[in-house]
Design a protein around this nucleic acid. Structure first.
Length: 343
RNA sequence: AGGGGUGUAGCUCAGCGGUAGAGCAUCGGUUUCCAAAACCGACGGCCGGGGGUUCGAUCCCCUCCGCCCCUGCCA
């Protein structure tokens, strides 16, 4: 594998990872998976998608659950439209170069950089003493995830922007320290109209797998009845749908349902209002439920079909890892050369 | 490492020798165009683990584990 040495000649390549920590929701699907599929199908970049199990264990994971969640996430990727031949799909721990490059980056990154990460401060908080060392070092592993592929583009949500900045800092410091132009300065791909899917019980909170109420979220494994029920019980207000988006400004719950409809139907929110302005929720909800069932139930059943064939999933991931290593092995080897490891 | 505190339902806590209770959360019902609010109801706990005293331990004693605070040690 030829390692391109100038910005212009880096292979256009997208890397993105999702933690297999369980509970794929509609938010993951509309916010990430669907975009991953679009990028894959657009064909402008090579696409590398990874279940980051090594990141997951920065906080406690039950081993049996972790295995199940990893396979379920893989099933979710495939059911959502990721083609394991078009894209490279695998779980992180199967490609050891991630962890190996992360160690090198641990020695490039500075404690101070890590300590400033807002996600670290949020998650560890005042209990930093009992947080794992891995949670602190997390951003260095993430930088390795990206740079072991020389990824030029990474789709990032607002919450990951700071980590990508750090990835760029690490790449720049590495290049500077060793006097090379080896790692690309990865560009963020900011989603335009990012679909932020909010809780069905509280339109001001993000839809989350950890919300105590299962009615607050739609799981990708929910069947048609569950999907319909959750939409029927979703929080709303007493007003009919407005004809203009402005009318949703202070109606987070209503806006959320409109946004979900728009994302599922692949139209703009305004287009949804054009069709449904004046409707009461008693009318709108069943229509939305029907749409959601139509779009999501097939994905859910495909997931369970795949989950029933575990050897097939494992085979796909093993194959994905093989393909990944064709990229990562030469880049790690070159990195070791640069750093001065005798091989 | 030493001293002190603490560990009871998902969460915050009450109980303190006779095998547990509240609020909130969750779920269901009534209501409502659907929801929300309100009201009604339900679910939910080897009372951190082990040992001991006792007729009997969540409650007393010992020990282990986890967490919090202070001091020290190390750097």
């Amino acid at each position: 594998m030829v390692v391109p040495m100038t910005e212009a000649s880096f292979t256009p390549r997208v890397f993105s990872g999702i933690q297999p920590s369980g509970g794929l929701t509609l938010g993951n699907y509309l916010g990430a998976m669907k975009r991953f599929v679009d990028m894959q199908d657009a064909g402008a970049h090579e696409t590398v998608y990874c279940m980051v199990d090594l990141h997951a264990i920065t906080v406690w994971q039950d081993p049996a659950d972790l295995q199940k969640n990893t396979r379920e996430l893989a099933a979710g990727f495939i059911a959502s439209g990721i083609d394991p031949e078009k894209s490279i799909l695998f779980n992180q721990s199967r490609v050891p170069e991630h962890a190996q490059l992360a160690w090198v980056f641990n020695c490039v990154a500075r404690m101070g950089w890590m300590g400033r990460m807002t996600q670290w401060k949020d998650k560890a908080g005042k209990n930093a003493e009992q947080a794992s060392l891995g949670l602190f070092a997390y951003p260095a592993l993430m930088a390795a995830d990206i740079l072991i592929y020389h990824a030029t583009h990474v789709p990032v949500g607002e919450d990951q922007k700071q980590h990508l900045e750090l990835t760029r800092d690490i790449a720049a410091k590495f290049n500077h320290d060793f006097g090379v132009d080896f790692f690309p300065i990865t560009e963020p791909v900011i989603e335009g109209a990012a679909t932020r899917v909010m809780s069905l019980r509280d339109g001001t909170k993000k839809m989350s797998k950890s919300d105590p109420s299962d009615l607050s979220r739609i799981n990708m494994t929910d069947d048609a009845d569950a999907i319909a029920k959750k939409i029927r019980k979703a929080k709303t207000d007493p007003e009919p749908l407005p004809s203009e988006l402005k009318g949703l400004d202070d109606r987070p719950d209503a806006r959320n349902l409109v946004n979900i409809y728009a994302a599922l139907a692949e139209v703009s929110p305004q287009a949804v209002l054009d069709d449904h302005a004046g409707q009461q929720f008693g009318t709108f909800k069943p229509i939305l439920a029907e749409l959601a069932v139509e779009k999501l139930a097939p994905i859910g059943s495909e997931m369970s079909r795949l989950m029933a064939d575990q050897p097939e999933i494992d085979r796909i991931l093993a194959r994905g890892a093989e393909r990944a290593r064709e990229i990562t092995e030469p880049i790690l080897a070159k990195t070791y050369d640069i750093v001065g490891m005798v091989r």
